[in-house]
Design a protein around this nucleic acid. Structure first.
Lengths: 153, 153
DNA sequence: GGCGAATGCTTGACTATCTAAAACAACCAT
DNA sequence: ATGGTTGTTTTAGATAGTCAAGCATTCGCC
């Protein structure tokens, strides 16, 4: 009964998996906290951070956030109500609406970035050499598909 | 203007931070997908996984999931409706309700664990020695506060 | 030039997650 | 016994997410 034919995993792999789980959990916690400090939800913070780099069509936002466009409509609505984001027409295509961060929106996004100490603090524990080693290991683990934005267009 | 007095960060640290962000994103994606394969939401999957180890009081669940107890009520309700979880009285304290996974719930939790290939697949890329190095780096990064469940009672 | 299909966004209906506040029951100390 | 504390649920309300339908615009094609 319950023949869980789970491929045998060595304890080391299990431990690494658990460590990664811990990193993931802590990262999220810190992110949500940082967002909350600026009266943003996680989803709002992610969207606003994207827009602080460049204006984007709603459709593009949905792709980057991996959700339905109709969902983006709501999130942008709430940010627009608060004056952090605005919708602009796309001169090249009148169907498209470009969401863009306002000056205030960019200010908040900057503050958010600064609050995101998660990455800096624990990394400070590591020497340059160790950071280098960590980078290489993570790269290999991610299989070079680390184009950081290569989410096929 | 906007004197973002952001402590200068070296490019290596920035890159490592981005890599960790990618790991976090992929982990979540995989987790949600695995949950969806078993007709569970992320929150339901996390809760059920906890209960597959041992029955827990609602209050304890809320602590582990870092949310309000009233929230746990709803999630357990939905899982109970589907017969994956049941509420039992705590013989030692009649106020307490112990949430416990049913046999079917444990079965699903097992399947969920098996689907969670995220950790195994990319880790297979690494040699034993590299895994060891990665473990040590992650441990140091997390500052030994990796008691994996030492969420003070 | 115009017609139909495809594209971009929004709306509406519905579910899940989450919080805060209030209600209720049971425990515990005095 | 009384009263304060603790554990759970209920209620109300917000956000986030899906899917299907609707509307406007663009594009392919004749």
């Amino acid at each position: 009964m319950a023949t869980h034919k789970r491929p045998r995993i060595d304890p080391l792999t299990v431990e690494v998996v658990e460590l990664i789980g811990t990193v993931v959990a802590r990262y999220h916690e810190e992110y949500e906290d940082a967002a909350a400090e600026h009266a943003l939800t996680g989803a709002q913070a992610r969207l606003l951070s994207l827009l602080s780099l460049e204006p984007l069509p709603m459709r593009r936002l949905a792709q980057k956030l991996r959700c339905e466009p109709s969902n983006v409509t709501g999130i942008v609505d709430r940010l627009e109500t608060r004056g952090l984001v605005e919708r602009r027409p796309d001169p090249a295509d009148r169907r498209v609406k470009l969401a863009a961060a306002t000056a205030e929106g960019r200010r908040i996004a900057g503050g958010l970035r600064d609050s995101l100490d998660f990455a800096r603090e624990p990394l400070a524990e590591l020497s340059d050499q160790e950071r280098l080693a960590l980078r290489d290991l993570l790269r290999r683990m991610l299989g070079e598909s680390t184009g950081a934005g290569t989410d096929g267009g």
